[in-house]
Each structure stands twice: as C-alpha cells, then as structure tokens.
Design a protein around this nucleic acid. Structure first.
Lengths: 246, 246
DNA sequence: CGACGTGTTGATCTCTCTCAATTAGAGTGG
DNA sequence: CCACTCTAATTGAGAGAGATCAACACGTCG
C-alpha cells in the first residue's frame, strides 16, 4: 500500500475521533516513518522484543498477548483501527507482551523516540497518548473482572457486547445491517477469556441456541441485545472514544 | 499529619526513584492541594465516582477494584507508596473502578486538572505520568495472565513473588531481616487472583507446608525463593522502577 | 462476655478442563 | 478431478481443580 498523507487520513474523519490542528497533523506526518502490511496470524511485535517502534493500527484487527513457558496463552486485549501499539514496550523494561495480527493489518510506523518528542513539542498529542494508554488499561481491567469473577457464559456475553460496540462505531453498519465484522476464531475467544477451546465452543453454542447472537461468515449479530447485556451485567457502560495518533 | 514540603519529600530520596529538577519540584508543590489520611478499609475513590482528584500514595497500601452488581469483587492491582491514583477516572468516561485503602494510608492530593497543565508546563513530568500509567497497565497484564492461565498454586506464588519484590524495594529490608511488610488478608489475595477464600487458604497452606514461604504478623518471608520463582514461571522479570509524582 | 473478623479444615458439588472422535471447508499437488 | 492435508467448529464422556457449604479456633474489641 502507498504511504498515505496524514493530512488526508481517512481514519481521522470518522465520527469516532476528535480533531487535530493542522500543526499537529504536520508533526505527526513528520515523525511517521512508514506504513506497512502484516499478514493475518503474523507477529507485529515479538514477546520480549525491546526495540520495537510505535505503531498506530490503521486497518484490520490485532491483539496483545502473553504466554507462559509451557505455551499457555492469554490474550490481553484486542486492537482495532486507531489503537496505539507499543507504548508499554517503550516504557517498561519488564513484563513484555507480544502483538499479533488477527486479520491482515496495515500499520503506521512511527519513530520510536516520538513519545518524548511529543511531550516536548505537542502536549495536546502527548495528552492523547496518555489518554489512550489509560483507556487501554481500563479495557484490560474489564477483562480481568470477567476472567476473575464471571462465569463462562457471562464472560462470553461481555466480550461479544463490548466488541460489538467497538466494531459498530468503527465499521459503520450499512443499511439495515445488524451485524458487525467479527474475525475472531473460537480459539481467540478462549484465549481472551481464560477458557478452554472446548468449553468456549459449548458456551457459544448455548447462547446461540438461546437466540442471543449469531456468528456467521466472520460477522457478529446480536439478536437479543437486552439478554446479552443482562447476562454480561453491563449496564450503561458506553465505551469512551479514543483519540488515535493518526 | 502536617502537609509536607515536596522539596523535602522523603519518598523521592529512596533509591527506587529518579531525580526531579528543582523547577519540577516547585511545579509539583504548586499543584499540590493537600495531604490527607484515610483509615484502613476505607474508600479512597468510590466505584463510579467521576469527580475524583488525583492522588499520589505517600504511605500505606491500597488497591483498585471492580465489582459486579451481585457483589463479586475483583481486585485489579495493589498500590504501594509512589503509585499514582486516579488517572483512569480522569481519562475515561466509562468503566470505572474503585480505590480502597488496605492499611491506613496518607495521600498527596493534586488539582484534578493537573494532567493537562503538566503536559503544557512540564513535559518531563507528563512523560512520567504516561510512564506510570503504562507501567500500571503492565502490572494488570501480568495479573490477567495469572488469572486466565495459571493454576491456583501458580497464581499465589506469582503474587507473592511480585509483591515481595516491590515491597523489598520500597521498605528496605533491615539487617538480616528476610521479610517484608505484607498487610493483605487472604480475602484480598483471593479477590486479586479470582479465587475463592477457602481455596486460597488451602493453597497458601500447601505452599507454606512445602517450606516455600511464611506469612506471620503482617510480614511475608520467602523461604525458598527458587521454588517460588519456579512455580510462578517468572524468570528474570525484574520490576522496573516507577517515577512517582511526588 | 458476646460479637466480629480472620484463618483453618473437612465434605460435597459443579463448572470447566482434558481426551477423543467427527464434520466441514479451503488449499495443494499430482 | 480427486486424494491429501490443515484448520476451525462440534459433540460426547470422564476427570479434576476449584467452588460452596459448614464448623470451629483464635484474637480483638466494645
């Protein structure tokens, strides 16, 4: 893919995102190194990698994860367009996670020292980075609550509702379409919720038979949003809108 | 307690923390509103509270948590002196967590709009805030890995090791003392690891009988650090040092 | 002295895991 | 065009880690 001009970035024009000043866009443009493609299921950042650059996910889905030495894997959170990748690697020496493409993705690549430069030259953008970081943490908090205290049914309902909401904002629902893109395999769901693959399948099937949702052709449809919300014990937790570095 | 002069802050002089310039200290001083005490087991920030100020934990232990509507509670992470409290509340409209004192604590209170001011006037300090936020997220990441993929034994070993390391840095081990302060009840451990109280007790007891640790009089001693590390599947994950806003 | 919080232990119960086997679709090569 | 392979989804059966229920010990405190 051709390197896009940040000033014409189509992502930023989505209703989900707030405005940048033209100087800010210029700065972003000046620190953008490249724009790259990564194929589905390929690593973006290896677990333990320390010299990774910073990325903004431009298109496609990805996820952050950690693994134990015997291979058990936990997905920490899912990344959608506009999400920032690599702040933790820059900031913390310890406790590294990997990032992997879930679908084919396209990434904007930034100089790895931009964080400091941003803080010096564009406090507003730096503020946004802090915002995004804090926001990502709150997502992990939600997942931790699920994995620690919710039953398998509740966990899955929660995940489906939250991902549906995020996807619905980013991928405008066309016409009377009631479904959103949903590229996760059941293995991804299992690894994201601390469940086994088999139990994930059975639980998913149970919810589907109850008429609560349907996953077909890589799309998710919430057929009974009320029941889903109820099962998830999520009341009015509207997701806040991130301000991506784009 | 008397309001301390930031310039003379005893916390900052600990080897754990890096230097601030005198201008930075002046700025911190100027945005510091107060210094308050909160008794053990008392809320610092209520779940759902939106107008909370920002705090730095000056002394004592605290924890962040979320609860489900039926009362199930998940502790997200434990807070020790130097930790920052309240960034998420400021940044994200959704998904609020509570913060509660675990022991009696003393907190430095900052104006709630300092985040923006910091970014404008002291980029280096703002950078530190981003650092702390990212670092706190990596802590939650570790816990999520534990809760999602580790057995009860492994979870407890992991928690004990990580808390021991943090506490050992902050509360210098006196003389040939091999123990660190450890104010958590078994209920806290259970809520932090997604386990039931009973099972937490039995697992703790099992590890203790194996000679791996001892918890007496609010202090934790790792009697067999190697076995602990091995059980935790933690190899060389030295905790990075935070730069607190103090 | 009784109430309460914390820790301890035994006895069940069950949710979730592990093992195993089958189906269906997509890709590959001869 | 047809074996062959691989991945993802599916379903049944049995096993087990951890939950729940219940009782009791101990120290602190009003």
């Amino acid at each position: 893919m051709e390197i896009l001009d940040c000033a014409a970035c189509p992502l930023r024009s989505l209703p989900a995102f707030t405005e940048h000043s033209s100087e800010e866009v210029e700065l972003i443009k000046s620190i953008k190194l490249d724009q790259i493609d990564v194929k589905a299921d390929r690593p973006i950042i290896h677990e333990g990698q320390v010299d990774a650059p910073l990325y903004t996910l431009f298109s496609g889905w990805a996820f952050r994860f950690k693994t134990l030495s015997d291979g058990r894997r936990q997905i920490l959170n899912f990344l959608l367009p506009g999400d920032f990748i690599g702040v933790q690697q820059r900031m913390s020496a310890s406790s590294i996670h990997g990032v992997q493409a879930l679908t084919a993705v396209n990434l904007c690549v930034f100089r790895r020292d931009i964080l400091w430069e941003l803080h010096r030259r564009a406090p507003r953008l730096a503020f946004d980075v802090t915002w995004l970081t804090a926001h990502e943490e709150s997502t992990v908090d939600d997942t931790l609550l699920s994995v620690g205290r919710r039953s398998a049914e509740e966990r899955i309902a929660t995940l489906l509702v939250l991902l549906y909401k995020r996807a619905a904002i980013l991928f405008r629902v066309v016409g009377r379409e009631r479904s959103v893109p949903f590229p996760l395999t059941q293995q991804h769901i299992a690894d994201g919720l601390g469940l086994s693959l088999v139990h994930t399948n059975k639980t998913l099937r149970k919810l589907e038979k109850r008429g609560m949702h349907r996953i077909v052709d890589g799309r998710l449809e919430l057929r009974d949003p009320a029941a889903m919300l109820n099962c998830a014990d999520l009341l009015g937790e509207g997701p806040a809108l991130p301000r991506p570095l784009i």
